[in-house]
């Protein structure tokens, strides 16, 4: 796998240097790496990365947090579920970027509209997975809990939260991945700073090596956030066993 990838990179390098492919659009990988290094050193990458991470984290915290709360509420109360399920189902597939102009008008041109869109993106997978997480708790466990007198807060803390946690974490993963995509996209649309804005600027100036360098950073970011979540899952779910 690694050999295959390296082979491709070598071929790309060769093709770009030999002029078989347009260097303007497909700069050689070594150039991309050097550019990445330069961007790291000269320092416009770090603040952009920090800002993107900030938007991502804030959006996910708000969106995934409220999504999980609503999911648990819908899972615990039949009437809430019946009332909200059609709304959630109808709103979920709306393309989030299409709503962005409306957010701009509602929330203004600052950070709020961007973070809100990221939050909205993180919200839906979280509601849906949390609800599914509650619903997949075994009937026997509900019965056992009820029989041993679990109600209200205790039921929530000891049964509903831990029982739904595996799917909640799956939801979180989907939420983070979706949110990362939307963060970058929103930054490309309307931000002057952040990784998305760097991509946009790189394309605007046709400095494609910078474009690839930022894409590389985003790829690593995705990889890192997913490994982190995987690690968290293993920590939080010792009862799931190794898979």
């Amino acid at each position: 796998m690694a050999a295959f990838a390296l082979g491709w990179l070598a071929l790309w390098e060769l093709a770009a240097r030999a002029g078989w492919i347009s260097r303007l659009f497909f700069p050689p990988p070594t150039t991309i790496l050097l550019t990445l290094g330069r961007m790291l050193v000269t320092g416009n990458l770090a603040p952009a990365l920090a800002l993107t991470l900030y938007r991502l984290a804030l959006g996910v915290a708000i969106g995934a947090g409220s999504g999980a709360l609503l999911g648990w509420l819908m899972g615990s109360s039949r009437s809430v579920r019946l009332a909200l399920d059609p709304i959630v189902t109808a709103l979920h597939p709306l393309p989030k970027l299409a709503i962005f102009p409306i957010f701009l008008v509602l929330l203004g041109i600052g950070e709020a509209s961007k973070v809100a869109l990221v939050a909205l993106t993180a919200f839906f997978p979280m509601v849906i997975n949390t609800l599914a997480g509650v619903q997949q708790i075994d009937t026997t466990h509900w019965e056992a809990a009820a029989n041993y007198g679990a109600r209200g807060r205790a039921l929530l803390q000891r049964i509903i939260l831990p029982g739904s946690l595996p799917l909640v974490l799956v939801g979180l993963r989907l939420a983070v991945n979706g949110a990362l995509m939307v963060t970058i996209a929103v930054e490309m649309l309307s931000a002057r700073e952040g990784l998305g804005a760097l991509i946009w600027l790189a394309w605007q100036t046709l400095r494609t090596e910078e474009l690839y360098a930022v894409l590389l950073v985003i790829g690593v970011l995705g990889l890192a956030s997913n490994s982190l979540l995987e690690l968290t899952s293993q920590r939080l779910l010792p009862w799931k066993g190794e898979t």
Binding site: W20, I21, I199, L215
Partner: peptide, 22 residues
């Protein structure tokens, strides 16, 4: 052969670029 490889590479990279950003 090199020409064909180059052409193939172009397609793959174009897909890459498309998927990536623009």
């Amino acid at each position: 052969i090199t020409y064909r490889i180059a052409k193939y590479l172009k397609v793959v990279l174009a897909v890459l670029l498309l998927a990536a950003c623009t």
